[in-house]
Amino acid sequence: MDLRQLRHFAALAENGSFVAAADVVGLSQPAFSRSIQALEHSLDCQLVDRSSRELRLTAQGLLVLEHAQRLLLGAHKLRNELVQFNGLSAGELRFGCGPTPAQALIPEALADFVRAYPGIQIDWEINHWDALSKRLLEEQLEFFVADARDFLGDPLYQVQVLSPSIGCFFCNSGHPLLARASLTLSDVMQFPLVAPRLSPSSRRAMARVSGRGDFRATVECGQFDAILRIVERSQAIGVATRQALQAPNERGALVELRLDDLPELRFSYGIIRRAGKLVSPAAQAMIAAIVEADQRQGASASGASQ
């Protein structure tokens, strides 16, 4: 058994046929079949049910596939991290974040990172918090940025809390609410609400503010640009942080709503890693860039509020 054979077997399982898998790995079909047969011989078991017209793995095949995927991932991570120890001139980085940090914080940090380390290949995933946490535990991501409150105290995660973000409601510049001399939360709740998919802690915070038993937006969306477009083209009210809304606000198309009875709504974002797991040098550098960008944005927000 060697990694090459395991890679061939994983390709077979992924592509569903000997012909397609052989093409993917760049072998002739006879050579590919011999590689799978050699793996079966070395493990002394049958991996593929050859009596079926469709490709099916045996029970032993499914077990081998599970271990093969872990071994191949581990080998890839080892090569990647060894390359990065030579000065971050090459290698790859995989991380994720929620829709709100993706609007301002992460692009600013990524700009700094790309300037400093142009040779690193980056796979940046924008998704909601529960999908990102699953990807982290499966070791498909090295870290992600999302609402930290649901991960604090969980032994599976290590959390580095960032500066608090202030939440707000916003609408388009022609919205009828802007004609009123004063606004309350009940006025806002008469309109459809558009927001990213919120974590349980954020939903509870929004429920307390809105006086509801639970909070669900009329439209939940994983792409912040889509939320902005919906609000720009309808009477829906958007939910965001002031940092995320800053750039769209500069264009004048969107306006933050100032409510007389709205208490300060805080979102607590953080950098979330697997507890007890070392991250690659590239991940360490990216985390440092995020922290620096967060500090700059926090200082800018404090100056603007004074």
Rank of each mutant, 00 (worst) to 15 (best):
D2K: 00
L3G: 10
L3D: 13
Q5H: 10
Q5W: 13
Q5L: 12
L6P: 03
A10W: 06
A10E: 07
A11S: 13
A11D: 04
E14T: 05
F18D: 03
V19I: 12
A20R: 09
V24R: 15
V24H: 13
V24Q: 10
V25P: 06
V25G: 02
P30C: 05
A31L: 06
F32W: 09
S35G: 04
I36K: 08
A38Q: 12
H41Q: 06
D44A: 15
L47V: 05
L47Y: 15
V48Q: 03
V48I: 09
R50S: 13
S51G: 00
L55G: 00
R56K: 13
L57S: 04
T58I: 00
T58K: 06
A59G: 04
Q60D: 15
A68M: 12
A68Q: 07
R70M: 12
L73V: 01
K77S: 02
N80D: 03
N80M: 04
E81T: 07
E81F: 03
G87M: 14
L88Y: 04
S89I: 09
L93M: 09
F95W: 15
P99E: 06
P101R: 13
P101Q: 07
A102P: 04
A102M: 11
Q103H: 10
A109P: 01
A111F: 09
D112T: 10
A116P: 09
Y117W: 15
P118C: 05
I120V: 10
D130R: 15
D130Q: 15
D130L: 12
A131Q: 11
E138L: 04
Q140V: 07
E142L: 12
F144S: 02
V145Y: 03
D147W: 04
D147F: 00
A148G: 02
G153F: 14
D154E: 07
P155Y: 12
Q158L: 14
Q158M: 11
Q160E: 12
V161D: 00
L162E: 11
L162I: 13
S163W: 05
P164C: 14
S165G: 08
I166E: 08
F169D: 07
F170A: 10
S173D: 09
H175Q: 08
H175V: 09
L177F: 00
L178Q: 11
A179P: 06
T184M: 15
D187F: 03
F191R: 03
L193P: 06
A195H: 03
R197V: 01
S201R: 01
R204V: 10
M206Q: 04
M206N: 02
R208F: 07
R212S: 11
D214E: 12
D214K: 08
R216Q: 13
C221A: 05
C221L: 14
F224R: 00
F224I: 03
A226S: 11
L228W: 03
I230T: 15
S234L: 07
S234I: 13
V239T: 00
R242V: 08
R242I: 10
A244F: 10
E250D: 09
G252F: 06
L257Q: 06
R258D: 10
L262E: 11
P263I: 09
L265S: 09
F267L: 02
G270D: 05
I271Y: 05
I272Y: 02
R273L: 07
R273E: 05
R274C: 07
R274P: 00
V279F: 08
A283T: 08
Q284N: 08
Q284I: 00
M286T: 04
A288T: 12
A288Y: 13
R296E: 04
Q297L: 15
A299E: 14
A301P: 00
A301K: 00
A304P: 08
Q306E: 14
